[in-house]
Each structure stands twice: as structure tokens, then as C-alpha cells.
Simulated scan of single mutants.
Amino acid sequence: MSSFFKDLLVWQKSLQFADKVIARTETLDTSAKHYRLIEQIEAASASVPQNIAEGKGRFHPKEFGQFLFYARGSLYETITLLHLFAMRKWITNSELETFEQEANEIGKMLNGLINSIKY
């Protein structure tokens, strides 16, 4: 089976981003009652490269574009959760800025890829 989605730089960067987010959740100092938020940020961040890969495997470019929109939505969800984590002091403002810079780069790449698709 071909892994042509692995050649996409946006997939590579979003996979690295998800890994960093998940690694950070493993060190959070918060009570167990917030496990749902932690699971949600892990799922949202991992959903970005997953949707890129799934969309790339679809038959029609229109389907690929739809999955790129899903990926972008998951990216925005991750950013929102990161802001909440910063408000709760679970991550520092510096960490938030770093994550947000990476997410903005990924978002621009997703937008460029979406705009390049010939529907």
C-alpha cells in the first residue's frame, strides 16, 4: 500500500505537533477530574494528521478537500483547548505561544493545500 500522504509536509508537521501536544499532556499537573479535557486535546491534535491521511486516500479531490477542512477544524479545536489550559495554568503562556506558532504554520499550510485542490 502506498503511503503518499507521508510525503505531505503538512502531514509531517501536524504529526510532530500532535506528538508534542500529547507529550505535554503526559506531564500536566492537574487533578484526575479533568481527564476528559486531556483526552479531548489528545484526540483533537491527533485528528489533524489523521484527517489529512484519510482524505489523501479518498478517490475524489473534493473528498480530500473535505477532510482537510476537518483537519483545520481539529487544529482550531486544539488551539482553543490550549488556551483553556493556559487559563487554568496547566501550561505556561510561553508554551501556549510556541504551540500557537506551530499551529498557525500548519493552518496556513492546510489553507494553501485546500486552495490548490482542483474541484
Rank of each mutant, 00 (worst) to 15 (best):
M1P: 10
M1W: 05
S2W: 02
S3L: 15
S3E: 15
F4I: 08
F4C: 08
F5D: 02
F5E: 02
D7A: 09
L8E: 07
V10P: 06
V10W: 04
K13T: 01
S14N: 04
L15G: 05
L15F: 13
A18F: 07
D19I: 14
K20P: 01
V21G: 08
V21L: 09
A23F: 02
T25R: 08
T25K: 08
T27P: 01
L28S: 04
L28T: 03
L28I: 11
T30V: 15
T30F: 12
A32K: 12
A32R: 12
A32V: 09
K33Q: 12
H34V: 07
H34C: 05
Y35Q: 12
Y35K: 10
L37E: 11
I38H: 06
I38S: 08
Q40F: 00
I41T: 06
E42T: 04
A43M: 05
A44G: 01
A44V: 07
S47V: 02
V48Y: 01
V48H: 03
P49Y: 00
Q50A: 12
Q50E: 00
N51L: 04
I52F: 01
I52S: 02
I52P: 02
A53F: 01
G55V: 06
G55R: 01
R58A: 00
F59Q: 07
K62S: 09
E63W: 07
E63V: 06
F69D: 10
F69E: 12
Y70I: 11
A71V: 06
G73Q: 04
G73C: 08
G73P: 05
S74C: 09
L75E: 06
Y76G: 07
E77R: 03
E77H: 05
T78Y: 09
T78D: 01
I79L: 12
I79Q: 14
L82R: 07
H83K: 14
L84T: 13
F85N: 07
A86V: 00
A86Q: 15
M87G: 10
R88E: 13
R88N: 10
K89I: 00
W90S: 04
W90F: 14
I91W: 06
T92V: 10
S94D: 15
S94N: 14
E95P: 05
E95S: 12
L96W: 06
L96S: 11
E97A: 15
T98H: 11
F99R: 14
E100C: 12
Q101W: 00
E102P: 05
E102M: 13
E102D: 15
A103F: 11
N104L: 14
E105M: 09
I106F: 07
I106L: 06
K108F: 05
N111I: 11
G112D: 03
L113W: 04
L113V: 03
L113K: 04
L113T: 09
I114K: 05
N115S: 14
N115H: 10
I117Q: 03
I117T: 04
